[in-house]
Amino acid sequence: MTNNDIITALQKQFQDVSFDEEISKFLTINVLPENYLDVMKALREMGFDYLFSMTGMDWGAELGVTNHLENTKTGDMVVVKVKLADREHPELPTLENIWKTAHLHEREIFDLFGINFKGHSVMKRLLLSDDWEGYPMRKDWQDETKMIIR
C-alpha cells in the first residue's frame, strides 16, 4: 500500500484529514479530535497492526498526540497527529480497544501532559505520585527546583 493509496482511502471516508509528506520520512496524517478514533480504526483495518509509539506533544497553543503506526507485514509506517486546542480540559478517546499497547502509553501521556483519555480502564498517574500538581512535560511548566530548567 503506497502513501497515495492511504490518502485516497482516507479521503473517501473523512473530510477534514490533511496530509504531509515533507516533515518526515513517513506520511503524516493530521486528524481532528472528533475523527481521531475512526481514522485510527480505519488504519488498523488497512493493516497497521503495530502501534509503535504514542508521543505526547505540546505545540504551544495546542496539546496533542503523535502516533507512529507500523504494518508488520510490509514494514510501512505512518504518523497520525491529533491536536487539541483546549489546554484546560484536553480529552481524547482511548485506543486501548484497538491496540493493547495504548494502555500504558496513554497513562504516561495523561501523567506528563494531562490529556485525559476517555474510556481508558485505569486513567491514573503512572510515573509521578498521585498528589503531584501540574504536568511537567508541558512547555509552560515551571521548574521551581531548577533541576532540569536551569
Binding site: S53, T55, H68, E108
Partner: peptide
Amino acid sequence: DLGVYIVSDGKKNPYRVKFRSPGFSNLN
C-alpha cells in the same frame, strides 16, 4: 525495538525528544 524520535525546530536543542523504549511496551 528502541525508537528515538526527535522533533526539531531548527535550534541548538530539540523541541521534543521521545524515547520509545522496548521495556515500556513489553511491560504492557
